[in-house]
């Protein structure tokens, strides 16, 4: 194929577009320096439409995007499968799906959930029974422990959440839990919220195994003495001289 033979060395882009000014040697090498901001901005699609047409070097070429792999005959999804897909998408985004929210939108929800149970293409869909609701998620897109965490967060009982996670962490890792842990994703509790919960925990016999300690650099931790001795928890919480 022969291209329009432009004279080499004559360096210029299409004229008359107003915004894409003549390209200087510097711009060509480093074409990211911000342009002047004095004119009113134009919306991208309007701008594109206003430009003269160009030849499409890919004319008639339609590169299949993911179609090639997806060409297997498109199966019509059942309503239950569509719901499962919705739950999966939310799980991929780190969210569980509440039964009560679904119920408000879908009349025959219970039948669909029953149907889902029978449908083996939906075997990844399961739920956690929280205090306030049932939380649905896909095991393909969300880990089991995270579903526990996010269900606790959704129940919005900070005391129960902190107690449960402090025990879980002491047993599983084993590790004392810094209060800061609950300031981060996905809890995002404020420090005053956490401190209020700590007060309630320390005054409730049900949480008698949960103790508090402050490490050598003033960071506060909780731990469960069912799984960690105070001495060991202290040692684990110590900020050692060398961590790099």
């Amino acid at each position: 194929m022969l291209f329009g033979r432009r004279k080499p060395g004559f360096i210029k882009v299409e004229e008359g577009d107003g915004i894409l000014e003549e390209v200087t040697e510097k711009d060509l090498q480093y074409s990211t320096s911000p342009k002047k901001d004095d004119e009113a901005k134009v919306e991208l699609t309007d701008f594109l439409a206003s430009l003269p047409d160009v030849e499409d070097p890919y004319e008639g070429i339609d590169v299949p995007e993911q179609e090639a792999e997806e060409e297997e005959e498109e199966v019509e999804l059942t309503k239950a499968q569509e719901l499962a897909e919705y739950i999966r998408l939310r799980s991929a985004g780190g969210e569980v799906t509440k039964y009560q929210d679904l119920k408000a939108e879908i009349e025959d929800l219970d039948e669909l959930l029953e149907e889902m149970k029978e449908d083996e293409t939906c075997s990844d869909i399961t739920y956690r029974q929280g205090v306030k609701d049932k939380y649905y998620y896909s095991t393909s897109n969300m880990s089991e422990n995270y579903s526990m965490i996010i269900s606790l967060v959704e129940d919005k009982d900070i005391v129960a959440t902190i107690a449960k996670m402090v025990r879980f962490n002491a047993k599983t890792y084993p590790s004392p839990t810094p209060l800061e842990y609950f300031e981060r994703h996905p809890y995002f509790y404020s420090r005053p919220q956490i401190e209020r919960a700590c007060d309630l925990i320390s005054s409730n016999e049900e949480y008698g195994d949960i103790e508090r300690l402050t490490n050598n650099v003033g960071v506060d931790f909780l731990f469960s003495n069912k799984y960690l001795s105070r001495k060991y928890a202290n040692a684990l919480a110590t900020d050692d001289e060398f961590t790099d």
Binding site: V13, I19, L20, S31, P34, D37, E39, K41, E43, L44
Partner: peptide
């Protein structure tokens, strides 16, 4: 070309 100058 850079999209500078356009709103998107």
């Amino acid at each position: 070309k850079s999209l500078v100058g356009l709103t998107v």
